[in-house]
Amino acid sequence: MLSLLLILVAALFFTGIIIRTKSLASGRKGPGIIQPIKDVIRLFKKGSVYSQTTSIIFQIAPTIYFASVVMAMLVIPFGQSKGIISFNGDFIFFAYVLALGKFFSIISALDTGSSFEGMGASREALYSMFAEPAFFILMGSLALLTGYTSFHEIFAALHVGSYISYAITVLATFVLVMVAMIENSRMPIDDPKTHLELTMVHEVMILDNSGFDLGLILTAGFMKFAIYGALVVNLFIGMVRYEYAIPMFFAIQFLMAVSIGLIESFMARFRMSHNAQFIVALTSVSLLIFFAVLLILGKFA
């Protein structure tokens, strides 16, 4: 329950901080931190335009996408306190329920019969397929390290002790941040601010969404960021008491948002054809984590 509240609060500011960081980095003053939320609220009130090609799939897809992200949010724990849904193997559920949202956003893009949106759909399907192994291997390594198979138990039992485990935490943070970037279609993979439909991934898929539906999609995007931020936080706060853990939560979320803003300000997007290689490289990083865990557990002996 606690984690749900915290994630929701973090989601309110996360995207705003990214945008603010980017504007500061480029020498502008930039909008206020809750401007994205204001935008979404305005979208919720607006009417919508639906393409005449679309069918019921296009109508329900944003809702299902939103619902899947909310479901995924419910399984995230916060340190010693469980998520609302918590069971052994809940991280499998987490990944697969997010896949449900992706499935619908892909087919809703195809529903418009557009020449661009199919392009985004095709890329999204391919990239998310490559991103998932990294997440599963990371969770498998942590499960092996701690001996548990649910988010809550894994994170509660995880404590940073030796140098190797520092390395593991750093690598795990890297993997989670990168998976977050892929899932949210952010910089090294996709540029949300690009002006050309041919080079977009996520943005091109939602070209035809408007009004309430677009609001749902954007809200889901904010929450997704906060969810992955919360996962990163969980790597560090396993044993920490709440009075320290909660400030730490916000500090890390803030740090993550700022660093995403900085990455987006100073890095160029990868070439589309190189994205797949990059994402596969992520899997090998998580394999490194796996081998480090083997090293800690003395399995090589």
Binding site: F44, K45, S48, S51, A67, S68, T112, S114, D208, D213
Partner: peptide, 27 residues
């Protein structure tokens, strides 16, 4: 998940009842 989807659809229905819905060609 089913309940949540239905709930959001219901909210969407209620909100959109007042809003202006248009039909246009795909962008």
């Amino acid at each position: 998940l089913f309940a949540l989807i239905l709930f959001v659809l219901l909210v969407r229905r209620i909100v959109q009842r007042k809003a202006k819905i248009e039909v246009a060609p795909t962008w």
